[in-house]
Structures are given as structure tokens and as C-alpha cells.
Amino acid sequence: SLVLLLGPSSPHFFLPPRYQQPLRPGGPGRQAADGPGRGSVLGPAGGPWSRQEALGLLEAAVVYREGPLVAVSKPPGLAVTGSPGQLSLVSLLPDLSQRLSLPPELHVVKAAGKDSSGLALLSGCPATTQRLHAFFTELRRAGRPPATYHAVTAGVPATVEGEICTGLKLEQVGDLQLVVPVAAPSRRSVERKEVKQTLTRYKVLGVAPGCGLVQLQPMTAFPSQLLVHLTLLLCPALGDHVYSARVGTVLGEPFLLPAGSALPRTQVPGSACPGHPFAGCALQSHGLG
């Protein structure tokens, strides 16, 4: 089976978990999408490392290698792609393949987002890459989740399992570009692709004081879909500095704030969460397919 890890911390990197890393001055910029010119809650894209330091981290963090497939643990803050001259996972692949004695052309099959640490699955064979991409596409067409995620949440969903189904769109909120839920999108907005109908299945696997371990199976793909869907359950992911501010509390009861009035800020977990054994990892996925 293939394994991906999408979360704030990884055993292969001695970095503070994301819930311990505050927002940098200037805020997250255009956080919604992972691409050239996008900002990061963890500071400038590319992380605080030089090229050689980043290569050393990746080389030391190979967790799986068989045939043309390699999985490395990517640190948070390292973008998958970037503009020319920008430090990114893709820009490091030629040197990484040489260090690992792999084929000269490595391809990214799947990887954690820029602000998350986690496994990046790489392939040294174009045919293998195409087969895996086709595999994920076929799963989606068949209505099967291509990945199963585990999220540590601040709070516990009201129901043990269910579905989150809502429209999502990218919206400019002040000087930030954020993902905003649209409860009842018009057919025209969906046809114009201004809004995408999204669906996530969830199941609570475990609970602790103030925290939950929730299984998530996204049936659609949209930037930050899982983070936004968790806020709709009133249980933001532990380590989410961008969307967790949308969940407020009154007399200990959570409620949803309007997206436009809840700008990103450093998440401050409840006193029960940081010391809990779940707290080392906020969002991870296992057993693709």
C-alpha cells in the first residue's frame, strides 16, 4: 500500500509542530493555493534553509524505497512547486536523484501541501507516474476516496460519522485569498466554475478531553477542503492557523463565525490538547486506494 502523511510534524524532522509555529509578520498572504507567488503561514516560501540544507533534510528523510518509487518526508514550509529560482521540492529533484542514485528525472506523484510536513511520493519512471495518476483518477470516477486522512481536531464532532457537503470558492478577503464555503451555490456559479461542490466523509475514531481523532475521506479535491470542512463541523484541525479562527465559543459552546470577519491568526489550542498523545500530528493520510 502507498502511504502519505500530511501534517504539522513528522518524526524525521526535529521542527516544532505547526500548532506551535505562530504566524509570521505580514500574515499568510495568499494562502489558499500552493503555487508560485503564494504566501505561507510559516513565512517566505521555501523555508528557512539553503539549497544544500534542504537537500540534506530530504536525503536523510527517505522512508520508503522500492523499484522506481521513493517516499521522503517533506518539512513544512517547503513548497512542492515554485517560480524559477525559488526553492521548492521540484527544484531539488535533479540533485536529490543524483544523491540517491536514482534515474535523472524524478516526478512528484503526490505530496503534502506547502505548509504541511508529510510524505512526498516520488517516481523515477514516467510510466509508473502515469499509472499512479490514472489510478487516482479512476478511484475518483468510481466514487471511491483516493486517500484516507486522519485529523486531530480541537473539539469533537457532534455526530460520530457523516458527510460534509458544501460549495467552496476562492474569495478575496481584504488582502488575503481564502477558501470560503457557499451553502447553496447557484447552478450558474457552479457551471462557471466560480464555486465547486465538495464532499468529505468523516468518522470519529477516538476522543480525549477537548480533542478528537477523525477519519476524513475527501470525495472531491479543492484547496484547503479538509481544513474548511472541519470548521463546518465546529472542530478545526489542530495546527490550522488559517481557518480555525472561524470557530468561536460562547460559554464553552462552539459556533461558526462569518468567513469575512474571522481572518487567519495563530491558533491557541485548549489546555487539554497540547499534552495529549494525538497532538504530535494534525492531519495525515494512510493507505491510498
Rank of each mutant, 00 (worst) to 15 (best):
Val90Ala: 13
Leu93Thr: 00
Leu92Thr: 03
Ser101Met: 11
Leu102Asp: 03
Leu100Lys: 05
Gly77His: 06
Gly77Val: 07
Val90His: 09
Ser73Ala: 13
Pro94Tyr: 06
Asp95Thr: 01
Val80Pro: 15
Val90Cys: 13
Pro76Trp: 05
Val90Trp: 04
Gly77Asp: 13
Gly82Thr: 01
Ser73Gly: 08
Leu89Asp: 14
Gln98Phe: 06
Ser73Val: 07
Gly77Leu: 07
Lys74Asp: 12
Asp95His: 08
Pro75Asp: 10
Leu78Tyr: 02
Lys74Ala: 09
Ser91Ile: 03
Gln86Tyr: 08
Leu92Gln: 06
Ala79Ile: 02
Leu92His: 06
Pro84Tyr: 07
Ser83Pro: 02
Val90Phe: 07
Pro76Gly: 10
Leu78Ser: 03
Gly77Ala: 14
Leu87Asn: 09
Ser101Pro: 02
Ser97Leu: 05
Ser73Ile: 00
Leu100Met: 12
Ser88Ala: 08
Val80Lys: 05
Val80Gln: 11
Leu78Lys: 05
Leu100Asn: 06
Gly82Phe: 03
Thr81Met: 11
Leu93His: 01
Thr81Pro: 02
Arg99Val: 02
Gln98Val: 04
Gly85Thr: 09
Ser91Val: 00
Leu92Asn: 07
Ser97Gly: 10
Gly85Pro: 11
Leu93Gln: 02
Pro84Asn: 10
Thr81Asn: 14
Gln98Pro: 00
Leu96Thr: 00
Pro76Thr: 05
Leu96Gly: 03
Val90Lys: 14
Gly77Met: 12
Pro75Ala: 09
Arg99Lys: 08
Pro76His: 15
Lys74Arg: 10
Gln86Ile: 06
Val90Gln: 13
Val80Thr: 15
